[in-house]
């Protein structure tokens, strides 16, 4: 699956705004909305709500992309975001607001770095994670590259 590289960046910008508003007082409902958005986009980047917004509103006004990029990095980033928001929600519902603040802040940082600096979370974090966790996934799941 290939996607317009500007779509995930646009989505990251919206995510940054949503998470900032959630921290400023939007609270739990907005976090749940964002978690759902992350989950949908991770499952299928083409169905991601922010990506749909990009395709409906922005893409028709822009020049076609000069090149497409693979969807796997985007999906990885969405899963990471979902984990952060999941932790934040656990913190909210367990009455540990510090945990909610820290996890939401981490997700905000990742989304902002993606939107503003085009920083690729999968590039920086994935190999480090795999190195620390040990055996390659390929050894357990026999699949093509």
């Amino acid at each position: 699956m290939l996607i317009d590289p500007r779509a995930p960046r646009f989505a990251a910008a919206i995510t940054t705004g949503v998470l900032a508003v959630a921290l400023l007082g939007g609270g739990t409902p907005l976090l749940i909305v964002q978690a759902v958005v992350f989950a949908i986009t991770a499952a299928n980047p083409r169905l991601g709500p922010y990506g749909l917004l990009y395709r409906l509103i922005l893409a028709p006004r822009l020049t076609p992309p000069t090149e497409l990029e693979p969807a796997a990095p985007v999906r990885f980033a969405q899963v990471v975001g979902l984990i952060f928001i999941g932790v934040a929600l656990v913190g909210q519902f367990a009455g540990v607001p510090v945990l909610a603040l820290a996890a939401t802040g981490a997700a905000l940082a990742a989304a902002f770095l993606n939107a503003a600096f085009d920083l690729c979370l999968g590039c920086l974090g994935y190999l480090a994670l795999r190195r620390l966790l040990g055996r390659p996934l390929a050894a357990r799941v026999p699949a093509g590259s």
């Binding site: 900032a20 959630a22 921290l23 400023l24 007082g25 609270g27 739990t28 909210q92 009455g95 607001p97 909610a100 603040l101 939401t104 802040g105 905000l108 940082a109 902002f112």
Partner: peptide
Amino acid sequence: AVHDLSLTGLAVVAGVL
């Protein structure tokens, strides 16, 4: 909890950015 978030939320957003 939501109220707590909004109290410190601004500081967190500014610090993170």
